[in-house]
Each structure stands twice: as structure tokens, then as C-alpha cells.
Design a protein around this nucleic acid. Structure first.
Lengths: 160, 160
DNA sequence: ACTCTTTAGTTGACTGAGCAAGTACTTGAA
DNA sequence: TTCAAGTACTTGCTCAGTCAACTAAAGAGT
């Protein structure tokens, strides 16, 4: 094994910290998706859209609001809503007040799917993330993710 | 806002813990990719392949070994190596000992790119993950990611 | 030696996401 | 009032990733 230069190479505890996080970054998202996908043919992202609509006033939101909730580009959201619409879970209607806007509404069927999927999904979140941790660790994780989140959003050349 | 049923809904601190982690899961990977992609046209995944090869004996590994290092399916790896090969950074050669296997080798050019990219990438990892945390938090994060990793790999219906 | 199965890897068809260009409506300013 | 600039979405193109089907070689059993 050849060394790769010595610009303060990542090593020891720091390397382990990073490797541990990288592993979770890699494996947790597909694991979170698995149940939802198998039983409801929903990705976590699509579930997030149903979640936002279900909790919105009159179960409807403008596309751009929805994109903000879902941390998504408008383009990604537009395609995702198209998929949900084609399954009859969401409907689109032009906003009467502003003809540029489109309001997405959760249908009865969509609400039904969301209510079926929710307990299972929350169960998955508990099983993979919350239950394995002690109360202290959950508290620590909140502080840690908050610091990382701030570093990411402060990053130059990276505006979420 | 309508409630969605009361099957021990996620709420309070637990909800915050989960929301915090979900945000990091969403934003950190693209932020980690950004510099590498801009300056070297390399994704984090492709960088990982170069990393594994650079640290392997004679800078070469069988595809399936490489897939294991990169936590990747063989199919994804095969396509990624094709991309790297087309840029002249990796070469493929049939294994003389076992005609089924293919050994991927890092070329001189590939080694060069890897050595150029490494300091910057490690700098990014520090900036986004390690530097924002205290020594205690880094220790905590190692323990936390280890528990989550175990929960994920133990998951029924999810065999990495 | 001759199949049968297993292992290693690649590839075709399809899907989801990003980017940039396009459409449609609104607002502001001459 | 009219037209330029801006806002809210959508869509065409391209690319990476998955799954399943395929090729090729190795090993196992008879």
C-alpha cells in the first residue's frame, strides 16, 4: 500500500468517524425506502409529498411550496407529482388567484394510501434509527446533525 | 392540519431527531460531491473506486473485490469502471488465474488524478463533517453510526 | 469426459434526477 | 396600454442506477 501524499491525511479516529458516517449515508436511505416501496410502491420522497399535503390546509399546496417542504427542485417535484397524479393520489389545478401557480391536492385515495403507509414507515424509522439509540444518543444526534447541516448550508458554492 | 391516526405517531424530540438526520441524509451527499465534481469531474463513488485501487496491492483489484470495497452492486461498478476506463484512469484485464475474473488497474493518469483530488476531498470532509464537531461529538457519532449500521444490516428483507 | 450448477462480469430496457430551454401568466414602468 | 422583465411550472435531453437476462469460465458429480 502506497501512501498518497501527506497533506494532513485523514487517519485514525477521524477516518473512522467519517467512514462510519459514510456507511450510514450509503445504506440507510435504501433501507428506509425498502418497506415503503415494497408495500406501497412509494419512495421516501413521494411519501414526503403526501405527508406535506396531508398536513396542509385543505390538503393542498402550490407546487413551489411543496418543493420547499420536500427540499426539492421544482423539476424533480413536477415529475414526482405527475407520477402520483397518474395513480390518482394527487390532483393538479391552476390557482384561480394566480394563473402561474398550480395547486396540488391530495385526493381521497391519496389520503387513504398515506394513512396506510404512515404507521409502517414510522415503524421503520424507529427500528432503524430511534430504537437502536439511547436517549442520550438521540440528544447528541440532534446536536450533531444540526452542526453538520449548518456547515453544509454555509458551504460556498452550495446554496440549497 | 389534520391528524393522521394515532399509532404512536412520531412526535416531539424523536421527530426532531429524525428530521435532523433526514436533512443531513438529503443534503450532505450532494455537498460532498460538489467540489470533486466541479474540479475533477468525479463523483464521490468514482473517487471511492480510485481510492480502493490506489491502496490495493499493485494498484489492482478484481471487479468483485472492488464492488465490495465500494459497497456497490457489480452492475453499478461495471458501468462506473467503464466511465473511468474511457477517461484513461483505469484499465481492465482478464485475470490469468481465473478467466471469469477481471482485474481493474489504476493507470498512471488515474493515480495522478487521485493524488490531485485527495487533499481537496479530505478538506471538504473536514469542513462539512469533522471540523464542525467537538472531539466528544465525533466520538459520539462513531457510536451512533455503528448502532444504526447494525440495525440496517440486521434488517429483515435488507441484505447488503 | 460430459453435463449441471455456480460464479464473474456485462448489457439492454427502464426509471428517476439534473440542467437548460420553453411556455404561460403577471407585474412594473414608460 | 403595451411591452419588457420576472415568476411558476413543465419538458427534452442526457446520464447514472436498478433489475433481469445474457455470456463465459470454473467446479462438481457421475
Amino acid at each position: 500500500m502506497t501512501d498518497t501524499g501527506d497533506h494532513a491525511l485523514l487517519a485514525g479516529d477521524d477516518l473512522e468517524t467519517w467512514a462510519g458516517l459514510a456507511t450510514v449515508l450509503e445504506w440507510l436511505p435504501p433501507a428506509l425506502d425498502a418497506d415503503l416501496l415494497r408495500d406501497f410502491d412509494l419512495t421516501h420522497f413521494e411519501y414526503g409529498i403526501l405527508y406535506a399535503l396531508a398536513h396542509a390546509k385543505e390538503q393542498q399546496l402550490r407546487m413551489s411550496e411543496l418543493a420547499a417542504f420536500a427540499n426539492s427542485s421544482l423539476s424533480r417535484l413536477s415529475r414526482a407529482v405527475s407520477r402520483l397524479e397518474s395513480r390518482g393520489w394527487v390532483e393538479r389545478a391552476r390557482d384561480p388567484g394566480d394563473g402561474r401557480s398550480i395547486r396540488a391536492t391530495l385526493t381521497e385515495a391519496g389520503r387513504h394510501v398515506f394513512e396506510e403507509a404512515t404507521p409502517q414507515h414510522e415503524q421503520t424509522v424507529r427500528r432503524l434509527v430511534l430504537d437502536p439509540l439511547t436517549a442520550a444518543q438521540k440528544r447528541q444526534l440532534r446536536a450533531i446533525t444540526e452542526r453538520i447541516r449548518r456547515a453544509v448550508t454555509d458551504a460556498p458554492a452550495w446554496r440549497p
